[in-house]
Amino acid sequence: MTAAPAREHAIEARELTRRFGTFTAVDHITFDVGVGEVFGFLGANGAGKTTAIRILTGLLAPSSGSARVAGHDVYTESEWIKRRIGYMSQKFSLYEDLTVGENIRLYGGIYDLSREVVRERTTHMLSRLGLDAATRVQALPLGWRQKLAFSVALLHEPSIVFLDEPTSGVDPITRRQFWELIYEAAARGTTVFVTTHYMDEAEYCDRISIMVAGRIGALGAPAELKSQFDVGSIDELFVRLARPTAGAAG
């Protein structure tokens, strides 16, 4: 694992805020993610993780503050950002009525990859995952789907990949396999921005932030945070930070 301090930033967020009416989902968050980092974005349900990820991927406009992703502004250059990022949403979003191969070809075409490149990467991907191109996606168990969705998100070799609770509901063995895939991507230089609420997964990240009610409650490498807050585990830290608003968290 490389925890090297990044010279340049893949993501820079400054006072980034998003309100829905009177509710502030993301409340003046500021953080940087270094190039090649595995950045864990933690928080209870409803803490604002998905809203933040949607702003960074260009799906949602911020209310105020600023952010740059892969060097592009989220207000004005969201379509440029989209060329540089991969995204795996919380809800499985490949086409279930298409086969594995058809889904890959569809996204390869949308990302302007040549047929040869798509074919080559498909072969590589399928042998790595142990999947058959002709399998209908609806026939795949959840863990396989998640691995496929992640691999499709990496198909165009983005510089940053956003993963929104990729391992939610997945068994522990498949979770480990999934994290192996994350490390492989990071080793190729891809920046990984991952949300989770499995605290053991937080330990796999280079750095983490813990969101509490729209704000960042803690930010740093897991080991640093544990000594800084004098806790034995990230789990303990999480509970301590989340408790004041535990009643509001849903």
């Binding site: 799906l59 995204y87 809800k91 490949l94 949308i110 302007d112």
Partner: peptide, 14 residues
């Protein structure tokens, strides 16, 4: 409804 649109919306398709 399916959520597949969100995946298309993060691609550079115009």
């Amino acid at each position: 409804e399916l959520g597949t649109l969100e995946q298309l919306n993060v691609t550079p398709i115009t």
